[in-house]
Protein backbone atom coordinates (compact mmCIF):
# COMPACT_ATOMS: atom_id res chain seq x y z
CA UNK A 1 0.00 0.00 0.00
CA UNK A 2 1.05 3.52 -0.68
CA UNK A 3 0.81 6.17 1.96
CA UNK A 4 -2.79 6.92 2.75
CA UNK A 5 -4.05 10.37 3.53
CA UNK A 6 -6.42 10.24 6.45
CA UNK A 7 -8.80 12.76 4.94
CA UNK A 8 -12.01 12.74 6.88
CA UNK A 9 -15.24 11.96 5.13
CA UNK A 10 -17.65 12.41 8.01
CA UNK A 11 -17.55 13.07 11.73
CA UNK A 12 -20.22 12.34 14.27
CA UNK A 13 -22.46 15.25 15.19
CA UNK A 14 -20.55 17.64 12.98
CA UNK A 15 -21.64 19.67 10.03
CA UNK A 16 -18.33 21.24 8.98
CA UNK A 17 -17.67 20.20 5.36
CA UNK A 18 -14.96 17.64 4.76
CA UNK A 19 -11.91 18.25 2.56
CA UNK A 20 -12.46 17.40 -1.09
CA UNK A 21 -9.05 18.08 -2.61
CA UNK A 22 -7.74 14.51 -2.51
CA UNK A 23 -9.49 11.32 -3.39
CA UNK A 24 -7.92 8.46 -1.51
CA UNK A 25 -8.78 4.95 -2.62
CA UNK A 26 -11.09 2.84 -0.52
CA UNK A 27 -9.30 0.15 1.42
CA UNK A 28 -10.58 -3.18 2.67
CA UNK A 29 -9.55 -6.12 4.80
CA UNK A 30 -10.56 -9.46 3.35
CA UNK A 31 -11.01 -12.32 5.79
CA UNK A 32 -10.96 -15.65 4.00
CA UNK A 33 -12.45 -17.95 6.62
CA UNK A 34 -11.70 -20.92 4.38
CA UNK A 35 -7.96 -20.31 4.83
CA UNK A 36 -8.20 -19.41 8.51
CA UNK A 37 -6.83 -21.90 11.03
CA UNK A 38 -8.04 -20.00 14.08
CA UNK A 39 -4.56 -19.50 15.49
CA UNK A 40 -5.38 -16.14 17.11
CA UNK A 41 -2.18 -14.50 15.88
CA UNK A 42 -4.45 -11.62 14.84
CA UNK A 43 -5.84 -11.32 18.35
CA UNK A 44 -2.36 -11.30 19.77
CA UNK A 45 -1.00 -8.78 17.25
CA UNK A 46 -3.98 -6.53 17.89
CA UNK A 47 -3.19 -6.38 21.60
CA UNK A 48 0.50 -5.81 20.90
CA UNK A 49 0.13 -3.02 18.38
CA UNK A 50 -2.70 -1.21 20.07
CA UNK A 51 -1.04 -1.52 23.47
CA UNK A 52 -3.99 -3.11 25.22
CA UNK A 53 -3.93 -6.22 27.38
CA UNK A 54 -6.84 -8.58 27.87
CA UNK A 55 -7.59 -9.85 31.36
CA UNK A 56 -6.70 -13.43 32.23
CA UNK A 57 -10.17 -14.89 31.90
CA UNK A 58 -11.67 -18.30 32.50
CA UNK A 59 -12.60 -21.11 30.17
CA UNK A 60 -16.33 -21.63 29.84
CA UNK A 61 -16.16 -24.63 27.55
CA UNK A 62 -14.77 -23.23 24.32
CA UNK A 63 -11.57 -22.38 22.46
CA UNK A 64 -12.94 -18.82 22.21
CA UNK A 65 -11.03 -16.60 24.59
CA UNK A 66 -11.93 -14.05 25.76
CA UNK A 67 -15.54 -15.11 25.26
CA UNK A 68 -16.59 -11.87 23.70
CA UNK A 69 -15.12 -8.67 22.32
CA UNK A 70 -14.02 -6.30 25.06
CA UNK A 71 -12.55 -2.83 25.38
CA UNK A 72 -9.16 -4.60 25.24
CA UNK A 73 -9.93 -7.23 22.60
CA UNK A 74 -10.96 -5.48 19.43
CA UNK A 75 -10.88 -8.64 17.43
CA UNK A 76 -11.88 -12.17 18.40
CA UNK A 77 -11.82 -15.58 16.81
CA UNK A 78 -15.29 -17.07 17.16
CA UNK A 79 -15.56 -20.86 16.98
CA UNK A 80 -18.67 -22.75 15.88
CA UNK A 81 -19.09 -26.51 15.54
CA UNK A 82 -21.67 -27.20 12.86
CA UNK A 83 -22.86 -30.68 12.02
CA UNK A 84 -25.30 -31.14 9.19
CA UNK A 85 -26.11 -34.51 7.62
CA UNK A 86 -23.22 -36.16 9.42
CA UNK A 87 -20.80 -33.62 7.99
CA UNK A 88 -18.88 -31.83 10.73
CA UNK A 89 -17.36 -28.42 10.23
CA UNK A 90 -15.50 -26.24 12.68
CA UNK A 91 -16.22 -22.76 11.40
CA UNK A 92 -13.84 -20.18 12.77
CA UNK A 93 -14.49 -16.52 12.11
CA UNK A 94 -12.47 -13.47 13.02
CA UNK A 95 -14.94 -11.02 14.44
CA UNK A 96 -14.43 -7.27 14.78
CA UNK A 97 -15.50 -3.96 13.31
CA UNK A 98 -16.73 -4.25 9.73
CA UNK A 99 -16.02 -0.60 8.89
CA UNK A 100 -19.39 -0.11 7.22
CA UNK A 101 -19.73 2.35 4.37
CA UNK A 102 -22.86 3.52 6.14
CA UNK A 103 -21.78 3.32 9.78
CA UNK A 104 -24.59 3.01 12.28
CA UNK A 105 -22.26 3.92 15.11
CA UNK A 106 -21.33 7.23 13.56
CA UNK A 107 -24.92 8.03 12.80
CA UNK A 108 -25.93 7.32 16.35
CA UNK A 109 -23.10 9.18 18.04
CA UNK A 110 -24.10 12.48 19.63
CA UNK A 111 -20.61 13.64 20.53
CA UNK A 112 -18.93 15.83 17.95
CA UNK A 113 -15.95 14.15 16.36
CA UNK A 114 -15.97 11.03 18.57
CA UNK A 115 -16.53 8.81 15.52
CA UNK A 116 -14.81 9.55 12.26
CA UNK A 117 -15.09 8.00 8.86
CA UNK A 118 -12.06 8.52 6.67
CA UNK A 119 -12.36 8.82 2.94
CA UNK A 120 -10.55 5.49 2.61
CA UNK A 121 -13.46 3.84 4.39
CA UNK A 122 -11.98 3.31 7.86
CA UNK A 123 -14.35 4.10 10.70
CA UNK A 124 -12.36 5.27 13.69
CA UNK A 125 -13.18 6.19 17.25
CA UNK A 126 -11.52 9.23 18.83
CA UNK A 127 -11.93 8.25 22.46
CA UNK A 128 -10.95 11.67 23.74
CA UNK A 129 -14.24 12.94 22.33
CA UNK A 130 -16.27 9.98 23.55
CA UNK A 131 -18.81 10.76 26.25
CA UNK A 132 -19.59 7.12 27.02
CA UNK A 133 -23.29 7.33 26.15
CA UNK A 134 -23.15 3.94 24.42
CA UNK A 135 -25.37 5.00 21.52
CA UNK A 136 -22.81 3.70 19.03
CA UNK A 137 -23.23 0.24 20.55
CA UNK A 138 -26.95 0.43 19.90
CA UNK A 139 -26.31 1.81 16.45
CA UNK A 140 -23.95 -0.97 15.37
CA UNK A 141 -25.68 -3.71 13.36
CA UNK A 142 -22.84 -6.12 14.21
CA UNK A 143 -22.65 -5.58 17.98
CA UNK A 144 -19.00 -4.58 17.96
CA UNK A 145 -18.11 -1.53 20.10
CA UNK A 146 -17.44 -2.17 23.79
CA UNK A 147 -17.65 0.28 26.67
CA UNK A 148 -14.67 0.31 28.98
CA UNK A 149 -15.43 0.08 32.67
CA UNK A 150 -12.15 1.77 33.35
CA UNK A 151 -12.69 5.07 31.55
CA UNK A 152 -16.31 4.84 30.39
CA UNK A 153 -15.32 5.25 26.76
CA UNK A 154 -16.01 2.97 23.84
CA UNK A 155 -13.32 1.02 21.98
CA UNK A 156 -13.20 -1.03 18.82
CA UNK A 157 -10.95 -1.94 15.89
CA UNK A 158 -9.45 1.09 14.15
CA UNK A 159 -8.33 -0.98 11.15
CA UNK A 160 -4.96 0.23 12.43
CA UNK A 161 -5.59 3.64 10.90
CA UNK A 162 -2.24 4.74 12.35
CA UNK A 163 -0.46 1.99 10.38
CA UNK A 164 -2.52 2.40 7.23
CA UNK A 165 -1.78 6.13 7.12
CA UNK A 166 1.93 5.39 6.77
CA UNK A 167 1.53 2.68 4.17
CA UNK A 168 1.50 -0.37 6.46
CA UNK A 169 -1.10 -3.09 6.63
CA UNK A 170 -3.10 -3.53 9.83
CA UNK A 171 -1.29 -5.51 12.54
CA UNK A 172 -3.60 -8.52 12.22
CA UNK A 173 -2.84 -8.79 8.51
CA UNK A 174 0.87 -8.69 9.18
CA UNK A 175 0.57 -11.48 11.76
CA UNK A 176 -1.68 -13.86 9.83
CA UNK A 177 0.43 -16.90 8.92
CA UNK A 178 -1.79 -18.36 6.22
CA UNK A 179 -2.76 -15.17 4.40
CA UNK A 180 -6.35 -15.75 5.38
CA UNK A 181 -6.24 -12.02 6.11
CA UNK A 182 -5.27 -9.74 3.26
CA UNK A 183 -5.48 -6.00 2.87
CA UNK A 184 -5.52 -3.59 -0.04
CA UNK A 185 -7.87 -1.51 -2.14
CA UNK A 186 -11.44 -2.66 -1.94
CA UNK A 187 -11.43 -3.35 -5.68
CA UNK A 188 -8.35 -5.57 -5.42
CA UNK A 189 -9.81 -7.40 -2.47
CA UNK A 190 -12.97 -8.12 -4.44
CA UNK A 191 -10.88 -9.49 -7.30
CA UNK A 192 -8.89 -11.66 -4.92
CA UNK A 193 -12.13 -12.88 -3.34
CA UNK A 194 -13.51 -13.79 -6.75
CA UNK A 195 -10.49 -16.02 -7.39
CA UNK A 196 -10.87 -17.68 -4.04
CA UNK A 197 -14.58 -18.24 -4.55
CA UNK A 198 -14.00 -19.84 -7.95
CA UNK A 199 -11.48 -22.19 -6.32
CA UNK A 200 -13.91 -23.06 -3.53
CA UNK A 201 -16.70 -23.78 -5.97
CA UNK A 202 -14.35 -26.12 -7.78
CA UNK A 203 -13.86 -27.94 -4.48
CA UNK A 204 -17.57 -28.43 -4.11
CA UNK A 205 -18.58 -25.43 -2.01
CA UNK A 206 -21.38 -24.39 -4.32
CA UNK A 207 -22.51 -21.56 -2.11
CA UNK A 208 -19.12 -19.99 -1.56
CA UNK A 209 -19.31 -16.25 -1.81
CA UNK A 210 -18.30 -12.80 -0.67
CA UNK A 211 -19.83 -11.13 2.36
CA UNK A 212 -20.07 -7.41 1.67
CA UNK A 213 -23.56 -6.61 2.98
CA UNK A 214 -25.33 -3.88 1.07
CA UNK A 215 -27.74 -3.12 3.92
CA UNK A 216 -24.95 -1.05 5.46
CA UNK A 217 -23.69 0.20 2.11
CA UNK A 218 -21.05 -2.53 1.90
CA UNK A 219 -18.20 -2.95 4.35
CA UNK A 220 -14.47 -2.36 4.43
CA UNK A 221 -13.97 -5.65 6.15
CA UNK A 222 -15.29 -8.47 3.99
CA UNK A 223 -15.46 -12.22 4.35
CA UNK A 224 -14.99 -15.09 1.93
CA UNK A 225 -17.40 -17.73 3.24
CA UNK A 226 -17.84 -21.33 2.12
CA UNK A 227 -21.51 -21.01 2.95
CA UNK A 228 -22.31 -17.45 1.91
CA UNK A 229 -25.97 -18.44 1.78
CA UNK A 230 -25.91 -19.07 5.53
CA UNK A 231 -23.66 -16.49 7.21
CA UNK A 232 -25.45 -17.12 10.50
CA UNK A 233 -23.63 -20.49 10.72
CA UNK A 234 -20.45 -18.54 11.44
CA UNK A 235 -21.34 -17.82 15.03
CA UNK A 236 -24.27 -15.61 14.16
CA UNK A 237 -22.86 -13.40 11.43
CA UNK A 238 -25.80 -11.17 10.45
CA UNK A 239 -27.50 -12.35 7.27
CA UNK A 240 -28.78 -8.96 6.22
CA UNK A 241 -27.49 -6.34 8.61
CA UNK A 242 -29.34 -3.04 8.76
CA UNK A 243 -28.91 -0.03 10.94
CA UNK A 244 -31.42 -0.15 13.76
CA UNK A 245 -34.45 1.94 12.68
CA UNK A 246 -34.29 3.68 16.06
CA UNK A 247 -31.00 5.22 14.89
CA UNK A 248 -32.73 6.81 11.92
CA UNK A 249 -35.44 8.18 14.16
CA UNK A 250 -32.75 9.40 16.51
CA UNK A 251 -30.87 10.97 13.68
CA UNK A 252 -33.95 12.64 12.19
CA UNK A 253 -35.76 13.94 15.26
CA UNK A 254 -34.35 12.96 18.59
CA UNK A 255 -30.70 13.77 18.00
CA UNK A 256 -31.17 17.48 17.25
CA UNK A 257 -33.34 17.70 20.34
CA UNK A 258 -30.82 15.90 22.45
CA UNK A 259 -28.05 18.08 21.11
CA UNK A 260 -30.06 21.12 22.09
CA UNK A 261 -30.52 19.68 25.55
CA UNK A 262 -26.80 19.05 25.83
CA UNK A 263 -26.02 22.52 24.63
CA UNK A 264 -28.44 23.69 27.29
CA UNK A 265 -26.55 21.76 29.90
CA UNK A 266 -23.26 23.24 28.79
CA UNK A 267 -24.71 26.70 28.79
CA UNK A 268 -26.16 25.98 32.24
CA UNK A 269 -22.71 25.02 33.41
CA UNK A 270 -21.29 28.16 31.91
CA UNK A 271 -23.78 30.37 33.71
CA UNK A 272 -23.20 28.39 36.88
CA UNK A 273 -19.49 29.15 36.59
CA UNK A 274 -20.02 32.81 35.80
CA UNK A 275 -22.56 33.23 38.57
CA UNK A 276 -21.24 31.03 41.37
CA UNK A 277 -17.65 30.17 40.41
CA UNK A 278 -15.95 26.83 40.08
CA UNK A 279 -17.12 23.85 42.08
CA UNK A 280 -14.89 23.18 45.07
CA UNK A 281 -14.01 19.58 45.73
CA UNK A 282 -14.42 18.67 49.35
CA UNK A 283 -11.25 17.37 50.93
CA UNK A 284 -12.65 14.13 52.27
CA UNK A 285 -14.19 13.43 48.89
CA UNK A 286 -10.69 13.47 47.38
CA UNK A 287 -9.40 11.20 50.06
CA UNK A 288 -12.16 8.76 49.31
CA UNK A 289 -11.12 8.63 45.71
CA UNK A 290 -7.49 8.03 46.58
Amino acid sequence: MALQSLDIWRRSATTTPSPQQREPIEVAKLIDVTKCIGCKACQSACQEWNDVREEIGVNVGTYQNPHDLTANSWTLMRFAEIEENGNLEWLIRKDGCMHCADPGCLKACPSPGAIIQYKNGIVDFAEENCIGCGYCIKGCPFNIPRLSEKDNKVYKCTLCSDRVSVGLEPACIKACPTQALVFGSKDDMKDHAAERIAELKERGFENAGLYDPQGVGGTHVMYVLHHADKPELYNGLAKDPQINPMVSIWKGITKPLALMAMAGAILGGFFHYIGIGPNEVEEDEEEEKA
Binding site: Q43, G57, N65
Partner: peptide, 12 residues
Protein backbone atom coordinates in the same frame (compact mmCIF):
# COMPACT_ATOMS: atom_id res chain seq x y z
CA UNK B 1 3.38 -14.15 28.73
CA UNK B 2 0.28 -12.18 29.48
CA UNK B 3 -1.07 -11.98 25.94
CA UNK B 4 -0.76 -15.72 25.31
CA UNK B 5 -2.24 -16.39 28.72
CA UNK B 6 -5.25 -14.23 27.88
CA UNK B 7 -5.88 -16.20 24.68
CA UNK B 8 -6.02 -19.54 26.46
CA UNK B 9 -6.18 -18.66 30.15
CA UNK B 10 -7.30 -21.84 31.84
CA UNK B 11 -6.72 -25.56 31.69
CA UNK B 12 -9.33 -27.63 29.90
Amino acid sequence: SKINASLQPEQF
